[in-house]
Amino acid sequence: MEQHGRPGRPASDRKGVGGTALAERRPRPRWRQRLATTLDLIRANPTGRVTLKIFIAIAGALVVTIGIALIPLPGPGWLLVIAGLGIWAVEFHWARRLLGFTRRHVHNWTQWVKRRSLAVRFALGAVGMVFVGAVVWLSLKYSFGIDVVAEALHYLATH
């Protein structure tokens, strides 16, 4: 099934008439075309469609769960949550909409930050680093019983 233009855009926003808008768009990468064809073949069979939905649901849930577990720690927690949404978006419309919403807001946030002065960007970075430091400190303190701040203050007082 061929799409003409972007979904959700009125026909008056599209360039040209009929299929001319497709000529202006870059062709899909070869691996994406193969993946789309493979998924279409799997979906053509009722058993394959159900199996694919179950596989996508489990794989997405696994990635999202790992991402959520890693959010308080420094690292790719949010990236994994968004990747899990991307996996779910292959089969589930609600995940596709949520992923689009997330992309828009992350893009708007980064554009807003880019328009700010260097001082504001440094302040935002500092606030982010303090937040991550506090999360790491609290995670270590309440998960492993290691109070890094108390240990550092004790070290400074004795040396």
Rank of each mutant, 00 (worst) to 15 (best):
1 M>N: 07
1 M>I: 05
2 E>R: 07
2 E>D: 12
2 E>L: 08
3 Q>L: 09
6 R>W: 10
6 R>M: 08
7 P>F: 03
7 P>K: 12
7 P>T: 12
7 P>S: 10
7 P>A: 14
8 G>P: 09
8 G>V: 10
10 P>Y: 01
10 P>W: 02
11 A>H: 04
11 A>E: 11
11 A>C: 02
11 A>Q: 04
11 A>D: 12
12 S>K: 05
12 S>V: 14
12 S>H: 07
13 D>W: 13
14 R>D: 03
16 G>M: 12
16 G>A: 06
16 G>W: 02
16 G>I: 07
19 G>M: 04
19 G>A: 09
20 T>V: 12
20 T>E: 15
21 A>S: 14
22 L>G: 08
22 L>C: 03
23 A>F: 04
25 R>N: 09
25 R>Q: 15
26 R>F: 03
27 P>H: 05
28 R>Q: 12
28 R>A: 15
28 R>S: 07
28 R>H: 05
28 R>V: 08
29 P>T: 07
29 P>V: 09
29 P>W: 02
29 P>I: 11
30 R>P: 01
30 R>D: 11
31 W>P: 07
31 W>L: 15
31 W>F: 14
32 R>E: 05
32 R>P: 00
32 R>A: 13
32 R>K: 06
32 R>I: 05
33 Q>H: 02
33 Q>T: 02
33 Q>Y: 01
34 R>A: 13
35 L>K: 08
35 L>V: 11
35 L>S: 10
35 L>Q: 11
35 L>N: 05
36 A>P: 00
37 T>G: 09
38 T>A: 15
38 T>Q: 07
39 L>A: 13
39 L>C: 10
39 L>F: 15
40 D>M: 02
41 L>D: 13
41 L>Y: 07
42 I>H: 10
42 I>S: 09
42 I>N: 05
44 A>G: 14
46 P>W: 01
46 P>K: 04
46 P>M: 09
46 P>F: 06
47 T>H: 09
47 T>D: 04
47 T>E: 03
49 R>G: 01
49 R>C: 02
49 R>Q: 07
50 V>P: 00
50 V>Q: 14
51 T>G: 07
51 T>I: 06
52 L>D: 01
52 L>N: 00
53 K>F: 00
53 K>Y: 02
53 K>R: 08
54 I>T: 11
54 I>A: 14
54 I>S: 04
54 I>K: 13
55 F>C: 00
55 F>S: 04
55 F>Q: 00
55 F>A: 12
56 I>A: 06
56 I>H: 02
56 I>D: 01
56 I>G: 01
57 A>S: 10
60 G>W: 00
60 G>E: 04
61 A>I: 03
61 A>T: 15
61 A>N: 03
